[in-house]
């Protein structure tokens, strides 16, 4: 597989074309905007947290295939997990796109997130892949209303 096909895997193309949880959430407990001024990617992530559990996640906005698919896969992955589990997953995802995970097994363990392994070959795109995650992190951990990857 070429680096390009590795980057734009079918999972990513699917989620870009038909993003999951792509909607505004009226009863969100928190909404945060994420913005990448360099390329204009701009998403709003909504979360509904009950105790320490994320009961719902959604997002809306516009961005490239990598950032949009990443937001979509993220929303599907963290729903019904605890805040701590979601944060741990973010850590793993970050290591994945930075190319810091060693071995097939470690990558496979990430399930659908493994589709983003190809990003590590494109350093300029790491910010695209991480934008939604940074935004979710801000929504879960602080009082900030917006985050920027610059």
């Amino acid at each position: 597989m070429t680096a390009l096909n590795e980057l734009y895997q079918q999972v990513i193309l699917d989620h870009n074309k038909a993003p999951r949880n792509f909607r505004k959430m009226e009863d969100a407990t928190k909404r945060v905007e994420g913005y990448n001024p360099l390329c204009g990617d701009h998403f709003t992530v909504y979360v509904k947290v009950d105790g320490d559990r994320i009961v719902d996640v959604s997002f809306e906005g516009a961005g490239c295939a990598i950032s949009k698919a990443s937001a979509s896969v993220m929303s599907a992955m963290v729903k019904s997990r605890t805040v701590a589990e979601a944060e741990e997953l973010f850590g793993e995802f970050h290591r994945l796109v930075k190319g810091e995970l060693q071995g097939e097994e470690e990558i496979e363990r990430l399930g659908k997130l493994a589709a983003f392994a190809g990003v590590s070959e494109f350093p300029a795109r790491v910010k695209c892949a991480s934008l939604a995650w940074h935004t979710l992190h801000a929504a879960l951990s602080s009082s900030e209303q917006s985050v920027s990857t610059e």
């Binding site: 070429t2 980057l7 390329c39 990617d41 990598i66 795109r125």
Partner: peptide, 22 residues
């Protein structure tokens, strides 16, 4: 249907340097 940033990445792989963004 294709974001400019994705065009930029594919073109770069083909050796073509363009600018994408604002």
């Amino acid at each position: 249907g294709i974001h400019p940033h994705d065009i930029g990445t594919v073109l770069d792989v083909e050796g073509v340097a363009i600018r994408t963004g604002h």
